[in-house]
Design a protein around this nucleic acid. Structure first.
Length: 666
DNA sequence: GCACCGCTAAACAAAA
DNA sequence: TTTTTGTTTAGCGGTG
């Protein structure tokens, strides 16, 4: 695909000097002719599509599916640079065509199978009269077939209505009559085995038929969901999907004579089988012998049905959610482009807003940075999430950053605002942070783990975080390295740069104390020193206080973000020794930049700690942010996460640790 | 303009 | 000898 190649070109292009961060853009006069500057070479210049840009894309009515087509994505700017409007339009049309084609193929396949089931059922009726009366089955199949047709038409109609698919006249439906003819005998045989299995299977079919009936009469979203499964795609806020992923394996075999849906790559695709078969004939033989109609096959078929059913249900839910999100966001395509907005206007307007504020137009604008325009290099986490869209709020500013970003506030001077803005942007304002942030957090966590994006946190805060996360609050340098690489994809390269920085920070900051341990030298954190590192300017400077007040929303968001971040990825909020016994009123003394401080606060709230009620939290978010990072808790608030966000996958650091051979990364 | 902060780079030394 | 670890210095850019 054109876009893909374009994306590849972009990504493979030398990007080192394009880093947004001033850090990575430092003149090479730093010495050494860049010998050790491998880090600067690529740090931020991944060409992925940031959530902000994604939203921007939507607002420009640029088909997200187009953008998403490239595996590693491509930024809007790049897209726009690469493609002229006519090209974009052509791309869109191409996408629509593909989408339509896949839809039709899917319908075709479904109807094919249903038809087959029906036919084989009839055959079976003759061959196996002892089977229970086929009337019910036939009825169910016919019903299902009919419903499938209706579904198809309905869905295509919907797509047409939404402008997602432009159908030539008369192309709205798939000629169902022709479908069964494309079925090979082996399919019939196999389907017969599956269908005629036993009573439970029949029940499942009935149930499915019932579901179809119910859903057909219900929402269009579900009809879309019903259609979607074979099309591997990511649902996007604008309802479009990435269609570049081929259909599932089975479908790829269907139209090929001499192939079998359960046979591929020389092996049997029966669940749990994987028996090697040299050719189709051997496979058919194997199929008939090993997967004949017996209890086992029946059970497996039943399981498979349930799997499909569950997936469909899940898909329906997600689809409905997407619809609701889109409805809520109005997704008007002709919204003013955030990129062209005066950034200072945005920031000034939003800084004084509450966290729940949206933009005047009612749309959640993507967070932009007053200091750094949105670039593909600075991507933020969680903005892409639905909840984020609710609350893209105050723009990160330096002053507010100082007081509001627990982990990094004020420490980053490298213009990382473009990135750091994401966290607060990710705060779903209308809801209590405790209820929503975990999701954001988890997403952010995952984001940083997977996206090659520089985290908006200072080395010092990260080091501290790494150390505090451990039960004994101490880490060797190597372990710190590992933590960095484990937690942030960004630190999986440029090792020379950031490791040097880590060492430099460890040595430089008095808050990091080197302790000789039995296993060598370990580094610990002197919390007192760490707190001292940042004098409580808040309490003294009227300007700062003013900024702080004006940035309440930001602070809340940020605090929430950090809290969530800590909750999901920085489980240091658990240590009783770190619990800050100070009251909420006493939290205003320090503006800290570590994730844990805020996290702890939020966590304690989330854990129903009497320290700060949710009301307090929401009404005085800045206090939360100001919470000194003394309360550490090692208990990972997974339950909170789980309850708050049912469908959010909570990343597990342990998994990360296992799956990530950190040692090899550096 | 200045101070401060954070980052990067580099040199150097000591230990493993 | 090489690598890792730790320290220190320098310079730069951003912010207040």
């Amino acid at each position: 695909m054109m876009v893909e190649s374009a994306s590849e070109t972009i990504r493979s292009a030398p990007s080192g000097q394009n880093g947004v961060s001033s850090i990575n853009n430092q003149p090479d006069g730093g010495g050494g002719g860049g010998g050790g500057r491998e880090g600067a070479a690529s740090g931020d210049s991944n060409g992925e599509l940031s959530p902000v840009e994604l939203l921007h894309f939507q607002q420009q009515q640029v088909p997200v599916s187009v953008a998403m087509m490239s595996p590693q994505m491509i930024t809007p700017q790049q897209m726009q640079q690469i493609l002229s409007p006519p090209q974009l339009q052509a791309l869109l049309q191409q996408q629509q065509a593909i989408m339509l084609q896949q839809l039709q193929e899917y319908y075709k396949k479904q109807q094919e199978q249903l038809h087959l089931q029906l036919l084989t059922q009839q055959q079976a009726g003759k061959q196996q009269p002892k089977e229970q009366p086929l009337g019910n089955k036939q009825l169910a199949f016919q019903q299902q077939l009919l419903q499938m047709q209706q579904l198809q038409q309905q869905h295509l109609l919907n797509l047409q209505r939404q402008g997602l698919v432009s159908l030539p006249p008369g192309q709205g439906t798939v000629p169902l009559q022709t479908l069964p003819q494309a079925v090979c005998p082996s399919d019939l045989q196999q389907l017969w085995k599956e269908v005629t299995a036993t009573q439970p299977v029949e029940d499942s079919i009935k149930q499915e038929g019932l579901d179809l009936t119910t859903n057909t009469s219900n929402s269009t979203s579900f009809s879309a969901a019903k259609v979607s499964p074979p099309i591997s795609h990511h649902p996007l806020p604008n309802g479009q999907s990435t269609m570049h992923t081929p259909r599932r394996d089975s479908s790829s075999h269907e139209e090929t004579p001499g192939s079998h849906p359960l046979y591929g790559h020389g092996e049997c695709k029966w669940p749990g089988c994987e028996t090697l078969c040299e050719d189709l004939g051997q496979f058919v033989k194997h199929l008939n012998t090993e997967h004949a109609l017996d209890d086992r096959s029946t059970a497996q078929c039943r399981v498979q049905m349930q799997v499909v059913q569950q997936l469909e249900i899940q898909l329906a839910k997600e689809s409905e959610r997407l619809q609701a999100m889109m409805a809520h966001l109005h997704m008007r395509p002709s919204e003013p482009k955030p990129f062209s907005q005066p950034l200072n206007l945005v920031s000034s307007a939003t800084l004084s807003k509450s966290t729940s504020d949206t933009f005047p137009d009612g749309l959640p604008h993507p967070p932009t940075s007053a200091t750094a325009p949105i670039t593909p290099l600075r991507q933020g986490p969680s903005v892409i999430s639905s909840s984020t869209l609710h609350s893209v709020g105050p723009i990160r500013r330096r002053n507010s950053e100082k007081f509001c970003t627990p982990i990094s506030s004020g420490e980053r001077r490298d213009g990382a605002a473009g990135l750091a803005v994401q966290p607060e942007g990710g705060m779903p304002s209308p809801l209590h942070p405790l209820l929503v942030l975990p999701a954001e957090l988890a997403q952010n966590h995952e984001f940083y783990k997977n996206a090659d994006v520089r985290p908006p946190f200072t080395y010092a805060s990260l080091i501290r975080q790494a150390i505090l996360e451990t039960p004994d609050r101490q880490l060797t340098l190597k372990e710190i390295y590992n933590w960095f690489t484990r937690m942030f994809a960004y630190f999986r390269r440029n090792t020379a740069t950031w490791k040097n920085a880590v060492r430099h920070n460890l040595s430089l900051h008095k808050c990091f104390v080197r302790v000789e341990n039995v296993k060598g030298a370990v580094w610990t954190v002197d919390e007192h020193e760490y707190q001292k590192r940042r004098p409580p300017k808040m309490t003294g400077s009227p300007t700062l206080v003013k900024n702080m007040i004006s940035g309440l929303g930001y602070g809340a968001l940020n605090a929430s973000y950090q809290a969530a971040l800590a909750e999901s990825s920085f489980p240091l909020l658990n240590s009783p020794t770190m619990i800050n016994t100070s009251s909420a009123s006493g939290m205003l003394h320090v503006g800290h930049d570590d994730v844990s401080s805020t996290v702890e606060q939020v966590n304690s709230n989330g854990s129903s700690s009497p320290r700060l009620s949710p009301q307090q939290y929401s009404s005085h978010p800045v206090h939360v942010k100001e919470e000194p990072a003394e309360a550490e808790d090692d208990n990972r608030p997974v339950s909170l996460l789980a309850t708050a966000t049912q469908n959010v996958t909570i990343p597990d650091d342990r998994d990360l640790e296992e799956e990530l051979p950190v040692e090899d990364l550096s």
